[in-house]
Write a protein that binds this DNA or RNA. Sequence first.
RNA 1: GGAACAUUAGCUCAGUUGGUUUAGAGCAUUACUUUGACAGAGUAGGGGUCACUGGUUCGAGUCCAGUAUGUUCCA
Length: 887
Amino acid sequence: MEISKTFDFKSAEQKWYQHWLDHKYFESTPDHREPYTVVIPPPNVTGILHMGHCLNNTIQDILVRRARMMGKNACWVPGTDHASIATEAKVVHMLRERGIQKSSLSREAFLEYAWEWKEKYGGIILQQLKKLGCSLDWNRTSFTMDPDYYQSVIHVFNDLYSKGYIYRGKRMINWDPRAKTALSDEEVIFKEVQGKLYFLQYQLADKEGNPLPLENGSITIATVRPETILGDAAIAVNPSDERFKHLIGTEAIVPLINRRIPIIGDDYVATDFGSGALKITPAHDMNDNQIGIKHGLAVYDILNEDGTMSADAQLYIGLDRFDARKQIVEELKSAGHVVKIDEYTHQVGFSERTDVVVEPRLSLQWWVDMKKISSPALNAVQDGEINFHPAKFKNLYRHWMENIKDWCISRQLWWGHQIPAWYDAEGRYIVAMNEDDAKQKFSAMYGIENPQLKQDEDCLDTWFSSWLWPFEVFKGISNPGNKDVAYYYPTNTLVTAPEIIFFWVARMVMAGYEYMGEKPFKDVYFTGIVRDLQGRKMSKQLGNSPDLLEMIDDIGADAVRFGILIASPAGNDLLWDKASNEQGRNFINKIWNALKLVQLWKERSKPNLSAEEMTLGSDWPHEWFDARLREVCTEADQLMEQFKLSEALKTLYTLVWDDFCSWYLEWIKPGFEKPMDEAHLNKAIGFFEILLERLHPYMPFVTEEMYHLLRDDQPVDLCVRQMDASFIARDADDAILKEAVLLKSAISTIRDARVKAQIKNKDAVSLFVAAKDRSVWLPIQELLCKQVNAKAFSFTDDAVADSIQLVIGGDKFYVKADQVLDTSIQRKELETELAYFQGFLESVEKKLSNEKFVSNAKQEVVDMERKKQADALNKIKMLKEGLANLG
RNA sequence: GGAACAUUAGCUCAGUUGGUUUAGAGCAUUACUUUGACAGAGUAGGGGUCACUGGUUCGAGUCCAGUAUGUUCCA
């Protein structure tokens, strides 16, 4: 068959992915085999494929394809996350383009648009994963807002509530005073703002709490929001601060409203910022709120929903916060409280939606009491029931789990799972599965017939649904104990990014134990963050993320997979560069050319060659490659077990490029215009198939294509070919591996000597060996001569005149050419080498003459040093002889 | 502010309980050779006081302490 000059990835990718789908290779149903289950970290339904996905899903595909070829029932479940914030933003954007305001719509109408958007644009990313070659079981595609999934989320909320694990509580949130809504942290955009830092003087109070005149002492605080002093509950100083230490326990007076507030000590206060004294406003600052809780301070909420001053502020009631700021500064100035005003640049949060300054504000939210469900999840990782790769994340996980904070699960959004709580007009509420259930429960609890109830407007945090993912994709909650969940759960490996270890991984572990009584996965592989060459995280904002689909189109999915993986050390971030794709493409080109060579041989092959036709008599190269293949595959398997995917691929890369292409194929190559022995050829094809099989999980398309080109009657597709476990299990033959090491080094050394002595390639040389053990050279002498263009090989006991002397494997080698040798380069080489060994010998002898070393070090270490000494001495002797021999 | 992790050749990284030929690989780079599988291949070379400062030890890239820098997560 005619083979194209290069691999045509475009047609191959299209052809083989469809072929695999047609043959249902990716579909899994429970059977007698051991399952290997992976659930995809569901990408946002709004998402498009970027480099992070590429890395993450390439790794999963490698694991899944490998498991499939190793006799497991591999099941990789695809799906998407409804991503409430991101999706709602997209929908709002779409509506705006159509001239519709979200606020003008009812919840139902808005959700209709949202579903319309989801059906039309959602899940593009799943189609893109096909381009990458991902072997997902598409029949199992899940979505976190599928009807069953939705019900399961509601069920879990009810269940946790009834167990007392969910409660309502006040929390500081980001408030958008224009939209009159809470914002998630992700919706707050921080901008650097040139503002003013006001230094304000508070009078101190006497024992009765009456203000002392300013001349009798005062305390100065610094603030950028002077209007908030109306909400002050305390002044805090650092207890180690000599300037203020003595004031702790006394009181100060809030200017203008004359509120008495305590002066407290807290380590939180930075002594070198502002004046060193910090006003505490628990209702309007995140950190102040924490300090307020810690010290049991009063809370004065001075702002209304729309950002105007509230009655609690006492002054400027109904005035906008910024107007209030201007006025209060003037009043404070005239009352003599302003010490100075500095220019000050700081970060201010703005609403992504309305671009107004966000106010921190206290509000009622739903919470999960994490301490109640976290302990099995902590233990599972500590005890190695679940393994993290790399293990360093275990510490991070433990630290977080031991200091776990309650989880705020309500979000002021519509797209998502609506919180299943119903309220009456008086604010009494009930948690239930649905409205009827709620009415019934409410009547029973409060003794009210036919209550008028309204469901909570908010929806649940997206993670409150995705933490059920590993079992709910198998309907573990909506259809408990079904065949699928029993078979596939717990899953095997989760591949995800370390930044969501708390948001997602830890919570899945908790949910797994809470609802399945069992861990959700055995291993967690954390990928690195993909960065550009400047070390910046790849992101949409920076625009430094390459267009993945364009890249696949350009260079092929296999090259992209190779490129991202080879650059990806286990657990470290990777600096990705287009050049690694090129390395992938070059590698594909290399194996493609190996195929072309084998194809060429096929055309010239015949059985039972005559003596003249034969280039190579022995089977030695095949025996060696067989042993080498097993040795390297074992090594690669071990690396895979340790989740060192990148290194495993490097190992196979070297096996193919060096051992197979550079050595093995060269060794069995027939002489110019000579035929190929059919038996040799079949051996080579057999090895080639195993190499393709090993590479398939990493580069599925090119390997499948080549596998079929290698033999047109393949009994199965490579995608589902089963790796021969017994092949690997056999121990590699050590003797032949050692012979090969000797052969390779002999070839390299002699080739080097030929170059240095400027012997032309076509000029044959004669080899003489003064061997201590002649038998080691016998099996490899034929190949050695073939590879270095030697016409004769003989043993000798004496030095050979006018030759180049080399040392290979401890034996003296003489290379003799027919023409006069240029020995100048050779001489220089020998002298450099001699200097090296003399320096080396010196360092070894220094060590050995150190009595403390000889008496304290382990015997074997000392012996090793003695051996080094002896070897070096021997080497030096031979080098000197070599120099003498050059004349 | 707290915590975790990292720092080894131009780049990306290995380096297992401290000793295995005066630090290894891939990519990149340079020189030479070759052009009958190879948008190339072969051979060789250059390039590192293993971030810094101390300490433990006969011996430290490896262990300990501190410093610096970077990254991430949490505030």
